[in-house]
């Protein structure tokens, strides 16, 4: 390799290495801010090494699994409340609006709203998360024992 090419190779490579280092350091510093949502345990125990806890009244997103049997609907309006969990603590979410189709108990969701008190959130938007597993209904039933029931059918069964 001739000296000029070698020089350019070193220059381009060092730019790339320095820049990756810089971006890496930046992302590391911003780590907590890049997260889209708090998990219930982050909300209760605090975030990161400083144990930063969000203050009451703060707007935030919370993401977790909907606890089975925790969904309580108001009979005369769209008001609904449910509990979220990840590894331990439970956080309650109140919401007034239409839930996404994928919302069901045991499913991951992300809610945006205001913190009412340490473990309660008044949500303005509820989004459903889905996981990276894809399979036909028959396979899911055989593997996981999950009987797929589309949400609409569940409601029609309750209110004939």
């Amino acid at each position: 390799m001739n000296p000029r090419r070698k020089q350019r190779l070193i220059a381009v490579s060092s730019i790339l290495v320095l820049l990756s280092g810089g971006v890496g350091a930046m992302l590391y510093a911003l780590n907590e801010n890049v997260d889209l949502f708090y998990t219930p345990s982050q909300l209760v125990d605090g975030l990161g090494e400083d144990k930063n806890k969000p203050v009451v009244g703060q707007r935030l997103r919370i993401g977790g699994m909907v606890v089975k049997g925790s969904v309580r609907r108001d009979e005369h309006s769209l008001k609904v409340s449910f509990d979220l969990v990840d590894t331990g603590p439970i956080v309650t979410v109140h919401y007034d609006g239409i839930l996404p189709d994928l919302f069901r108990e045991g499913q991951g969701i992300v809610a945006q709203g205001t913190l009412l008190n340490a473990t309660t959130i008044e949500a303005t938007e509820v989004l459903a998360k889905h996981d990276e597993n894809y399979m036909p209904p028959e396979v899911a039933e055989a593997m996981k024992g999950i009987k797929h029931v589309p949400p609409k059918q569940t409601y029609s069964a309750e209110t004939p």
Partner: peptide
């Protein structure tokens, strides 16, 4: 993987078995 996101994790571009039924 690094942050929590609304987007789900990788289905096929990972070293583990793809989490997708062969028919799909």
């Amino acid at each position: 993987e690094w942050w929590n996101t609304l987007h789900q994790g990788a289905t096929i571009t990972k070293f583990a078995k793809p989490s997708m039924d062969p028919s799909m």
